[in-house]
Amino acid sequence: MLQRTIPLVIVFVMGILTTLQFYIPHPISQEFYRTTIDWMNGISSMAIILAIGSLIKHHWTKVSRGQNVVYSTTTLVSLAFMALIGFIGGIGQHSLFQKLFENVQIPLQATMFSLLAFFMASAAYRAFRAKTFEATLLLLAAFIVMIGMIPLGYYISPGISQFSQWILDVPNMAAKRGIMIGVGLGMISTSLKIILGIERNWLGG
């Protein structure tokens, strides 16, 4: 009962109520929507504590076993420091927390993602082979979009930039729309399966 029935009842009741409220333009329905959104945001935010707990446990175990002590300590100390700075000094625009975010987290993150430019280029060189007609199309589209975005493409011929934009606006848009409609249908069917209790994998073993 407590293990399976109540969670399934919660899913069913909340799923039906939140679907129906969309079609009922009444103040009670709107109040229900606002309250549910508050609850959702609050409950989902509390999951971060669980995630942080798991991260701390992982690195604490490593430190106590003497594995990668320096690196795991770095993670634990920086986590505690950043968390305390935010809780004590606040997260306002001119706070130390914001300074650390702008000068430590953002540069690290941006540099990490910029590294992907090198790895994508090397992976593409190794993986892409124009062996089939479809693969050739993919390569050509990628090449034209890339060259069309840089000034060199425009200097070679203004038509390249226009053609690149056309690829993005027409065939790319058609493919994205088809995928989006498919994803939408998938979302609806999966949601219905969850609400009606047909899909129960989330209950675990």
């Binding site: 993670t75 420091f81 968390a83 700075i85 927390f97 430590v104 990490m112």
Partner: peptide
């Protein structure tokens, strides 16, 4: 590791 810690704290 610094990025992981700082992001988690953030």
């Amino acid at each position: 590791h610094l990025l992981v810690g700082v992001s988690a704290g953030y």
